Computed example of a mutant assay.
Amino acid sequence: MSRKILVPLATLSAAAAVAVGSGATFTSTSGNTISAATSGTLTQLNSKDGGAIFDLTNMKPGDTLNGALNLTNTGSLPATFSLTETGSTNGFTADNLSLAITNTTTGATVYSGTFGGLVDGTKTDLGVIQPGVLNNFKFTVKLAQTAPNADQGKSATATYTWDSVQLNGTTTNQ
């Protein structure tokens, strides 16, 4: 009788082994197309790049003269712009020769004081300029009505650099 029980048990064991090893497994796959990343650009266009903003000669007491330039963020990134007076001289007495720099696009006063009075080598913040945006800067130079005879034949010069720095990056999840 033990033989009669063992044969059916052996048959059940063999059937179970075949069922487990039959390969009835679920699978799934997915894919993506090639992903890409491109860096932005940071460039600017200065309407008077390499040239003088103004060349004022033969000023007399009470004269007010203007110069202007356009500065455009021609890159693809928003940036913080700044103006640096890289060097200056002013042979006029006291504060008889004054300079005002205004961003006429935003209405902001960049500087107002003695000509050459910006601290040489120190950046003056102009704020953020978005890509494709033009800003117009007006330079107004005045020789005081009360300028003395000692200011005859005097001169003043200043050189400027316009800088831009990209805004700090942020991570965007898409």
Rank of each mutant, 00 (worst) to 15 (best):
L56W: 15
T57N: 15
T57I: 15
T57M: 11
N58G: 14
K60I: 06
K60R: 07
K60H: 04
P61A: 15
P61Y: 15
G62F: 15
G62N: 14
L65P: 02
L65W: 14
L65T: 14
N66H: 12
G67Y: 13
G67T: 13
A68P: 02
A68R: 12
N70K: 15
T72P: 06
G75Q: 14
G75T: 11
S76M: 08
P78D: 10
T80D: 13
T80H: 05
F81T: 08
S82M: 05
L83N: 07
L83G: 05
L83Y: 05
T84W: 01
E85N: 03
G87N: 11
G87S: 13
T89H: 05
T89P: 06
N90F: 08
G91K: 08
F92M: 07
F92C: 04
T93Q: 09
A94Q: 11
A94K: 11
A94W: 04
D95Q: 09
L97K: 08
S98T: 13
L99H: 03
A100D: 09
A100Y: 03
A100P: 00
I101K: 09
I101R: 01
I101W: 05
T102P: 02
T102G: 04
T102R: 03
N103I: 00
N103M: 03
N103D: 12
N103H: 03
T105P: 04
T105S: 15
T106V: 09
T106G: 07
G107Y: 03
G107I: 02
A108D: 14
A108K: 12
T109C: 01
Y111C: 00
Y111P: 01
Y111M: 01
S112L: 14
S112N: 15
G113N: 00
T114N: 09
T114Q: 06
T114L: 07
G116P: 12
L118V: 03
L118W: 07
V119E: 15
D120V: 13
G121T: 06
T122Y: 09
T122A: 14
T122S: 14
K123L: 06
T124H: 13
T124F: 09
T124V: 15
L126V: 10
L126N: 04
L126R: 08
G127A: 09
V128C: 05
I129T: 10
Q130T: 14
Q130W: 02
G132N: 07
G132Y: 07
V133W: 07
L134G: 02
N135P: 01
N135W: 02
N136V: 15
N136S: 15
N136W: 01
F137P: 10
F137I: 07
F137E: 08
F139P: 04
T140V: 04
T140H: 00
T140R: 01
T140I: 04
V141F: 00
V141G: 00
K142N: 13
K142H: 03
K142A: 10
A144D: 08
A144V: 03
Q145I: 05
Q145V: 10
T146V: 11
T146D: 12
A147I: 08
P148M: 02
P148W: 01
P148A: 11
N149E: 09
N149W: 06
A150N: 13
D151T: 04
D151R: 06
Q152P: 01
Q152E: 14
Q152F: 12
G153V: 10
G153R: 05
